[in-house]
């Protein structure tokens, strides 16, 4: 990804819009008693398009903003989301994305990773309350929602950041011609 001030501004706007939509909309709707969580999917998409550093940095700042707005202990969401973004970026750097299903599957898998990460951080910090087995259902359903939402987020974010993507020029280039060839 080629970073220009304009592209950075777009990424910031995407992150802000994502956090606002999550807190004001997705967290407040229930589908089969579970609210979707788009933030891990958003971080995964930024990691897939921008690489491991973009994913990690975006995850850190998105997590920090969420923790600030929810007045939770700062750093917990940052830690989880930066790991999520970094892994997504690492995947992008190591493997080619041949199928359009790959981003959606990655969103699903890494959302599950993020949910497990939240649980791990919370358990490390200490949990005095009882933990229901329904938590596992919540984590799995959030991952399933991330499959569908992640696909849509990938399409939208890729379109917004298209001018900065190295692999995707704005217009298809003509095939290279060789002098003297017929």
């Amino acid at each position: 990804m080629i970073f220009t001030p304009k592209i950075v501004a777009r990424i910031v706007a995407i992150a802000l819009l994502g956090v606002m939509l999550q807190l004001s909309f997705f967290s407040r709707v229930d589908l089969f008693q579970v609210s979707p969580d788009i933030l891990p999917a958003l971080v995964v998409v930024l990691g897939l398009l921008g690489g491991s550093m973009t994913g990690a940095v975006a995850g850190f700042w998105i997590g920090l903003l969420v923790d600030c707005l929810l007045v939770e202990a700062l750093g917990a969401s940052s830690l989880v989301l930066l790991g999520t973004g970094y892994l997504a970026g690492l995947f992008r750097e190591r493997f080619e994305i041949h199928s359009s299903l790959v981003p959606a599957l990655l969103c699903m898998g890494l959302t599950l990773f993020a949910e497990l990460g939240y649980a791990a951080v919370q358990l490390l910090l200490g949990v005095d309350s009882h933990v229901s087995l329904l938590l596992i259902r919540d984590m799995l359903l959030k991952s399933v929602y991330a499959f569908f939402l992640g696909w849509a987020i990938y399409m939208v974010v890729r379109r917004i950041l298209r001018p900065a993507l190295v692999e995707e020029p704005d217009s298809p280039r003509p095939a290279p011609s060789v002098l003297g060839a017929r």
Partner: peptide, 11 residues
């Protein structure tokens, strides 16, 4: 006006 998306934080 908003709600936490994290299962562990019900705020």
């Amino acid at each position: 006006i908003s709600r936490s998306p994290i299962i562990w934080h019900s705020t």
